[in-house]
Design a protein around this nucleic acid. Sequence first.
DNA 1: CTGGCAATCTGGTCTATACCAAGGATGGTT
DNA 2: AACCATCCTTGGTATAGACCAGATTGCCAG
Lengths: 232, 232
Amino acid sequence: MSDAYYLQLTEHLRELIRDPERLTDGRLPPERLLAERFRTTRMTLRQALAQLEGEGRIHRSNRRGWFVSPERLLYDPTRDAGFNDYVRAQERVPRTEVLAVETRPHPPAAQALGLPASHAFYHIRRRRFVDDRAVLAESLWVVPERAPGLLEHRFDHSLWGLLRKHWQIELAHRSIRMMSEALSRQDAKDLGVTPGTAGLGINRAIFDGERRPVEYDEEHWLHDAICVTVDI
Amino acid sequence: MSDAYYLQLTEHLRELIRDPERLTDGRLPPERLLAERFRTTRMTLRQALAQLEGEGRIHRSNRRGWFVSPERLLYDPTRDAGFNDYVRAQERVPRTEVLAVETRPHPPAAQALGLPASHAFYHIRRRRFVDDRAVLAESLWVVPERAPGLLEHRFDHSLWGLLRKHWQIELAHRSIRMMSEALSRQDAKDLGVTPGTAGLGINRAIFDGERRPVEYDEEHWLHDAICVTVDI
DNA sequence: CTGGCAATCTGGTCTATACCAAGGATGGTT
DNA sequence: AACCATCCTTGGTATAGACCAGATTGCCAG
């Protein structure tokens, strides 16, 4: 069934990837070298690489090179387990960087929570790592009335843990949406990947036991970094 | 901020797309024509198209052309509403084609349901349309002991409806997984798209009230066709 | 009127090459 | 030891052109 050459290339590359000994730090050889080795042009080779990227087998770090993608992290967005906890539970190493903390309106959050568009929120933006790979850019918008003084705290741990502990907030109702996307300029930059890289967007609107709005958040994951799970 | 040219192209194309009057049947002009119009090469133009494809704004039907993508269908995989019902509830037109019905073992289903790998299942494969666009290729594997004689029925309506009605099966526990993927050769062919097109895979293992395995299924959606929702 | 073949349209694949721009390493300076 | 300018490596973008292969259309023959 004489295939397109780039599809044959993916097979060769798959072999290369399977064999951790043939790679250093899970890093693939440079495109030019691979193209030469397989007697083709960089363009054709890149088509093969793009295919494997779509399958989630390899990924690239902007202008640094191609790397073998690790196992996907299992992630259940319906639970309120903290990032650090569920990453560690899977024997991976979590890390969080807080990129910004501010107070300002955010119409999309307001709309999702049923508040007027001009309503101000505590906004926290973070970048999260698994085994030192930046895989998630997230923004949270918390309704200030629910957690006055929130911004005095540190945000490198679970925000929901904070809300529960200091303000006794019970996260009752959640409305979750997930869809494939192309990472925005900003998210791509924060994650160190090419703009337009495939991603998975997850956003949640969260209400307390009395149906009062508590928080809205948006997560932008590298598409190959997670496998979403839900158990009911 | 002088951008890459293909990114400027995406802006022009976005304009083109916004304006339904400039397109016939939501169909974009041929690549060669667009390339000429924007004074660039087909390769560069295709990069812009690929970007918009990743954003879910346009899609292509294998060797037929590029089309503007419709609104995403909202889909809650935790509910057992039938496809026809929730599609119609969103004022869209559903259609289902049964591609295959057979009895045979399927190790992945067996594993997900905790059965021996050699266990035989009723296997049903369908293709589902929204507004005449094939958006979903799905396979279901039903445990025969739960629904003897199932294959005598028709499968263009809700399978879960059938199970409830004829065998009084209550779908109690579900284990759901979702991840981005590249569509397989077979799925791509069934959906009339290029192999390797970005997709969203959803699979479920379902048990009855007594924790007995009932069914395992795999759904392969075009990535731009749905927005997954979950409310808790 | 209908079935089938052929031309044509459209995207799909591939070659060969050039230059750009960000990341990282190097080595010298302070 | 910290810092910074520079160079090199690597992917990112772009051109120009050629041929392949499935989908569609339309014509022609039966």
